[in-house]
């Protein structure tokens, strides 16, 4: 299981992370409210044998998502957009979040998030929206998808933070020094030469995660987690071994300044 989890996160580029403060609070609120599931059961237009989602099971599935996505009361944008008021939202439409051009295009062509569209998207994001920045290979397990969607249906009923684009304040943790440094984006651009052999500066994720437009906190934390092997990935561990605080801050500044195409 540990291995399988690791493999998945390798592709997704998101190793198991500590809960962000917002998501932790959201999860607590949810447990307290627990609205009637019957109102929220998703219909299944795709198969003739409808699968009903279990929100409690879906909350566990969401663990794979929450290093990038927040949902529930006070959710904010992180590596991915917050998921409050998701159902009925036009794809790629949140202000202040740097979506890929492909997702914005899909949205302007009429893609709206609901049970059906999420079900197709989550099964293989890159197939449904080629060029999406979401570094997630997909969830082939139909039951897991339905559980997740049922959970999102509940959790996303909350209102997001007043300013969902405000960066989360850095906490006292690994990488605190790098987070406090104002990174030099020009130095970061030079250092990025090493990254862009695999990570595309356009923001495309074709099997290697997109790293453009991330909040500084997430970027710095991710690199330190590779450095300290909290996230296991040999290439990233090797790359980060030679990066100090100034380098990491510079890379965060440079990649944070890029807009996905």
């Amino acid at each position: 299981m540990r291995q399988a989890g690791r493999a998945l996160t390798l592709a997704a580029g998101i190793a198991a992370m500590a809960l962000t403060a917002g998501a932790a609070a959201a999860a607590g609120n949810l447990a307290a409210r627990n609205p009637a599931a019957s109102d929220l059961a998703p219909s299944d237009p795709i198969t003739s044998d409808p699968v009903t989602g279990d929100p409690a099971a879906g909350e566990k599935v969401f663990k794979e998502c929450r290093s990038c996505h927040q949902v529930g009361a006070g959710a904010r944008n992180g590596i991915g957009p917050h998921l409050d008021k998701l159902f009925g939202r036009q794809a790629g439409s949140l202000e202040g979040f740097a979506y890929s051009l492909s997702l914005r295009r899909k949205g302007s062509q009429g893609l709206v998030w609901n049970e059906e569209t999420l079900d197709i998207y989550l099964s293989k994001p890159q197939a449904y929206v080629p060029g999406t920045r979401m570094s997630f290979r997909g969830m082939p397990d139909e039951q897991a998808r339905h559980d997740l969607i049922a959970y999102l249906r509940e959790a996303s009923a909350e209102a997001p933070a007043e300013d969902p684009t405000a960066p989360p304040s850095p906490r006292d943790e690994i990488g605190a020094i790098a987070m406090s440094i104002e990174g030099d984006p020009d130095f970061g651009e030079y250092l990025s030469n090493e990254c862009v052999t695999c990570h595309q500066p356009s923001g495309r994720a074709d099997g290697i995660p997109s790293i453009v437009g991330w909040p500084k906190v997430d970027f710095v934390r991710a690199l330190f987690e590779y450095k300290t092997n909290v996230r296991s990935h040999e290439v990233m561990r090797m790359v980060t071994r030679n990066l100090g605080n100034d380098e990491i801050a510079a890379l965060a500044a440079y990649f944070g300044s890029l807009s996905p195409q």
Binding site: Q3, R6, A7, A11, V196, Q200, D206, I208
Partner: peptide, 23 residues
Amino acid sequence: EDSALRKATYEESLGWYAGITSD
């Protein structure tokens, strides 16, 4: 190594190919 890790390594190589050829 287990098959899930090996599969992820292969998929990573596809990402690398897309990345390096555009670089």
